[in-house]
Design a protein around this nucleic acid. Structure first.
Length: 423
RNA sequence: UCCUCGAUAGCUCAAUGGUAGAGCACCCGGCUGUUAACCGGGUGGUUGUAGGUUCGAGUCCUACUCGAGGAGCCA
């Protein structure tokens, strides 16, 4: 006898078949019992009459159920199963997560079980769809996936705090960005991207931060700043429309308002840092030229637009050493942050990279970064250097935005935050 | 690192300085169409830790621990 996925049951009305899964609810009114079973694809109610079940089935009991699929207008799925035979595969006494409310700490401590809930499963499917669409878009547009090392000898930008490890007695670090390596790979393969975990040891405690998160980092040879922005907005448009196509039921489970997502079409608006300051001044959030924008500023700016907005041409002094100064205005760089609507903040950061060897060396010195460590990086400018650009997209922030979540910790199966490395 | 808030039953939360309670979970019983099913009964407590004030502290004070939200920094 074949096992059938719950999601496919509506195609099998009138048939006798078997589903395997876990009991999410058990209700009984004496002689008739209702067993709600989840199998990872969907949820179906199974009706069991008379005294075929002697005792209640505990939440999350693993079962095999054989019976007839019947049409029923009372079922959200449209069908239910009239049980002929039920077998308990694994018992589940005292399942800790109840249908009532739980606090964040309790749920995160039981994350290994929490992922079974409909809401968490929906989020993980949306994450999967976003990954699939992002990779699909890049694969179809001539990018080659080429992943940089995770164990690295030094910081990419020298700014953020790294997790140190003992590499056979030598100090090494977990990567906080693969970008410098991606530049090397772009000179080999043209358009490349990496997709993998990234680590930041900063003591950030907000709904937008994880210490371990996944980043998509495309890097493109012969691509200048403007073209890079076009790649970014097309990628995001593709991701969001893909999620709407692939995950409509999951977004419904989450209660996501779809109208802001349906508006995510390229081109995205662009404002310069200077224009951002002018807008912020009218909002009573004044920022001195040369100061960085804080989270409240980003939220206020993003609220003025109905789709993601690029903020470009930041002061050179605020940004990383490798970013290309604007040739017409060297006090600003050809860099952009992409701010998501609805207060989700920066989801992409990118720039054109310096390709001139002298300028790069000079910038390294200004940032007091040792030439020795960056010698291989300088080689990229020594041998056939070309203009090139790239960007990094924070997967969890994009998932949180698309799914409409309060916190990024729900966007990854086992979130690593400042105060949690378990389970 | 800084600011704010919090910690009481397995979970979510109540409790004027005066006998620690409810809902859910769990156990027992009832119910032939339930949908976070419902109805009746029951089990369950070193009130985060250590000190202090008081006749008396879950409640007030001090320190610490842990957690949450935010800032900074970043994706």
């Amino acid at each position: 006898m074949m096992n059938t996925r719950v999601i496919d049951l509506p195609h099998h009305v009138g048939h006798q078949l078997t589903v395997r899964g876990w009991v999410t609810h058990f209700r009984s009114s004496g002689k008739i019992h209702f067993i709600v079973v989840r199998d990872g694809t969907g949820v179906v109610q199974c009706v069991y009459k008379h005294d075929q079940v002697q005792e209640p089935l505990a939440t999350e009991t693993a079962v095999t159920i054989n019976g007839e699929v019947r049409k029923d207008v009372r079922s959200p799925l449209g069908v239910e199963i009239a049980v002929r035979h039920l077998e308990i595969i694994g018992e589940s006494p005292d399942y800790p997560i109840t249908p009532k409310e739980h606090g964040t700490d309790f749920l995160m401590a039981h994350r290994h079980l929490w992922v079974r809930s409909p809401r968490q499963s929906a989020i993980l499917r949306i994450r999967a769809a976003i990954i699939r669409r992002a990779r699909g878009f890049l694969d179809e547009h001539g990018f080659t996936v080429a992943d940089p090392p995770i164990i690295t000898p030094a910081a990419a930008e020298g700014s953020t705090t790294l997790f140190g490890i003992d590499y056979f007695g030598e100090p090494a670090f977990l990567s906080q960005s693969g970008q410098l390596y991606m530049e090397a790979l772009a000179m080999a393969l043209g358009k490349v991207y990496s997709f993998g975990p990234t680590f930041r040891a900063e003591k950030s405690k907000t709904r937008r931060h994880l210490t371990e998160f996944w980043m998509l980092e495309p890097e493109m040879a012969f691509v200048e700043f403007e073209e890079s922005l076009r790649w970014q907005e097309q990628l995001l448009e593709s991701i969001v429309s893909g999620a709407l196509e692939d995950c409509a039921p999951d977004l419904l489970v989450l209660g996501r308002d779809l109208s802001p997502l349906e508006r995510v079409k390229a081109p995205f608006p662009r404002i310069t840092y200077d224009e951002a300051l002018a807008r912020l001044a009218t909002l009573n959030l004044p920022v001195e030229w040369g100061e960085d924008l804080g989270a409240p500023h980003e939220t206020a700016l993003a609220e003025q637009f109905d789709r993601p907005v690029f903020v470009t041409h930041y002061p050179t002094a605020l940004k990383a050493f490798y970013m290309q100064p604007d040739p017409h205005r060297p006090e600003v760089v050809l860099a952009a942050d992409l701010l998501a609507p609805e207060g989700y903040g920066e989801i992409v950061g990118g720039s054109q990279r310096i390709h001139d060897p002298e300028l790069l060396q000079q910038r390294l010195q200004q940032h007091r970064l040792p030439d020795v460590v960056y010698s291989w990086y300088l080689d990229l400018r020594r041998y056939g250097s070309v203009p090139h650009s790239g960007f990094g997209m924070g997967l969890e922030r994009v998932v949180a935005w698309v799914a409409g979540l309060e916190h990024v910790r729900e966007t990854t199966p086992f979130a690593r935050t400042l105060n949690r490395v378990w389970p």
